[in-house]
Computed example of a mutant assay.
Amino acid sequence: MRAYIENISKIVEQMDIQLRTNLLIKDGQIQEKKLWENTYIKHQKDRRDRKEGFSISDHIRGMVYAMLSSGIAWERVENSIDILTGKIETIDEIFHQYNPQILLECSPEELSDKVKHLHCASQSTKKQMNGLIHTNIEKLMQLEKEYDSIDGFYQRFIDKDSSYKTLIKTLSDSDSVNKMVEMGEALNAEYLRNVGYDMAKPDRHIRRILGSNVLACSEHEIVPLFQTFDIVKDIADELGKSVAEVDYILWSYCSKGYGEVCTVINPKCSICVARQICRKHVEK
């Protein structure tokens, strides 16, 4: 398995090069906002590496960004992204810069309608806004009150399990008192990445490209949620990169408006740097 991870790591490195030198070029220019180093997640990881504190507003922003990543093409928000911070300025305005007291007075329906007006809403947005306003913000406020900071509470789980899996479970499991409403494992991982924690997001792109039909890092066609964390970390360790960066490279290689190479429909196998080992391509 070690040798195989080494091989996959080289392919991920080639994906990154291809993205930067070809796939993310438009009208002769690199699309700077789509580079890893300019993403919101990278900026937040840098903050956590510098041991900066994260406020409740930071956590609410991270949760909102995670919710909006569900079910829409991320390129829809591109024009609103501040390249210096990675923040989505139009969304930040709608959510009152994530002031919890102001948000608790807001109508979830009104927030949902404003997000929809920006073409950033999915079928889940209305339910997500209800969960955010009626439950999740109050939970975050309670954690901050009881543990001095939200991260102080999260650190209790990280100290026992540095893979973040236990923390993800306590925020996601339906029978957990710490369950965040309308937030499953993938969205909670994205939320935590948005406040600087270095992990993968086990979404449909990552779980498929690592699965048995493509890069074959697992015996499963769609990699199980928590196995995804382990595989991406192994690749990151081999490359000497952060887990979140490796996740971003793989995600970009699949995603609409980014690399769009390893897609479910009409994949561009002829230019894919993984075509020599891709099970789906080899079996054609």
Rank of each mutant, 00 (worst) to 15 (best):
H220N: 12
I265E: 15
S270T: 07
C269M: 03
V77W: 12
Y258C: 00
H119M: 14
F54H: 12
M141H: 09
Y147V: 12
Q123K: 14
H59M: 07
I11G: 02
T263N: 06
S212Q: 07
I231D: 02
R156G: 11
N22C: 07
I60Q: 02
V243I: 06
I168A: 13
T263L: 07
S176K: 03
K169Q: 11
H119Y: 15
F54D: 12
P267C: 04
R193Q: 11
G152W: 00
D203L: 01
P267T: 07
K42V: 12
R2I: 15
T166S: 12
M15V: 01
C254D: 01
E144M: 05
D46S: 13
I94L: 01
I83Q: 03
S124H: 15
R193W: 11
A3K: 09
E52N: 08
N130M: 13
Y253W: 05
I5C: 03
W74G: 09
I222V: 07
I25H: 00
V246N: 03
K33A: 06
F226T: 04
I8T: 00
L84K: 10
I83V: 01
L239N: 05
K280H: 11
P100Y: 10
Q128H: 13
V246Q: 00
I235M: 01
R207Y: 02
M63C: 10
Y4H: 02
T263K: 13
V232D: 00
K45T: 15
W251A: 04
K10F: 11
H134W: 11
I5G: 06
Q155P: 08
S270R: 08
R50S: 10
Q31V: 09
E78V: 03
K42L: 10
S174W: 10
I133L: 01
K10H: 04
K45S: 15
A121Y: 08
Y197Q: 13
M141D: 09
Q18W: 07
R275C: 14
E219T: 09
T166N: 14
M67L: 13
I72M: 00
K139N: 03
H134R: 05
F157N: 11
D113H: 15
R2D: 15
L192Y: 07
H205P: 03
R193G: 08
A189P: 06
Q29W: 14
Q18L: 11
H117P: 12
L23F: 02
I265F: 14
T263V: 12
C269K: 01
